[in-house]
Computed example of a mutant assay.
Amino acid sequence: MQERDERGREVLGVYSHSLKYQYQFGERGSSYRQGTYWFVIRLDEERYSVQPLNGHHLPSGVTKTVTKEEFLQYYTPEMEYFRKHTAPALESLREKLFMGRRFFDMGRLDKAEKLFCSIVLQDETNIDANTGLTEVYANQKRFTDLRTVLDRLFGVDDLFREQQRHKFNEFGILLRKQGLFDDAVRFYRKALEVNPEDDHLHFNLARAYYERGRKDSCLEHLYECLRLNPGLVEAACFLDHIEEEDAKESGS
């Protein structure tokens, strides 16, 4: 199996896990069928990412990294399980996400919401579907529903991992543009707990604080952004703008 995920990493498929069963190289099939099932991605030659499957045969929940030695000792390939259950479930999910995004781009928000909701029913922590719902609810000004999804997303640690940086940057910008400055601040602060050296996070948090009217906090993160990346033109221009505002206020 040589499938690749969206980041180009090698997908190994579904494996079962047992502390009592050691897979022997060259063994045909697996006699183990009663333990937990895990979706496995090879990170590099020495590390593997494993994520448990939920009742819908989809990878869901917290991922963890195991060493090559641990992986070879305790994880057993379940190719037939992957072929019959997980592969079709993943393909169905991809189709729903594609159609959901397409309906959203067409302005057919009700249909987009229906598809994103159907995914969340199968995988409550699916980042793409939940993010899609936030965009639908933001456009419909359904802020109570939006905050429900936000609270769910804040509990998904995977969202704030390094590999999701492009997603949570876009997501925070969406919140800020919708005028949800407190939620944007909350979102970026959570992301910074995982990525404290991310200059763009500090820049976006500075903008959210500025819109919130908290100039001191804005400048704090703007300075930190420029310390991390002195060449970020947008941050330098933003700082110039704030300094010009301060000068005008002082002059008046």
Rank of each mutant, 00 (worst) to 15 (best):
F171V: 04
I119Q: 11
L133W: 03
F39H: 09
G13D: 01
Y75T: 08
E3D: 12
T144I: 01
Y209T: 09
A112W: 11
V194H: 05
M99P: 00
T63H: 15
L159F: 13
P88T: 06
A206P: 12
F103D: 11
D246R: 06
K114T: 12
E162H: 11
N204W: 11
A138S: 15
T65P: 10
Y37E: 00
D128W: 03
E6S: 15
E224M: 01
E211F: 08
K114F: 10
C117H: 02
I242E: 01
Y223D: 15
I119G: 08
K215G: 02
F154S: 04
R207V: 12
V66C: 06
F82E: 10
M79I: 06
L121H: 09
G61T: 08
Q140Y: 00
E6P: 15
H56W: 05
E135Y: 01
E234T: 07
E69S: 01
F25Q: 15
F104G: 03
E80A: 07
S250Y: 07
T148Y: 01
Q2L: 12
I41P: 10
R214H: 09
H241F: 13
N126M: 00
L232E: 13
G55T: 11
R165Q: 08
F203S: 06
E113H: 07
F168H: 15
L174M: 07
L121I: 04
P88H: 07
I242K: 07
G61Q: 09
Q34P: 00
P59S: 09
P52I: 15
R176E: 05
Q140A: 00
G107H: 05
R33G: 13
F238V: 07
K215Q: 14
M106L: 14
G29V: 13
P196S: 06
C218P: 13
S118K: 04
E27P: 01
T125I: 03
F181I: 00
I41D: 07
G107M: 03
K190W: 01
S60M: 06
K248R: 09
S31W: 02
D158G: 13
N204Q: 14
Y209G: 06
R94S: 13
D240Q: 09
E78I: 06
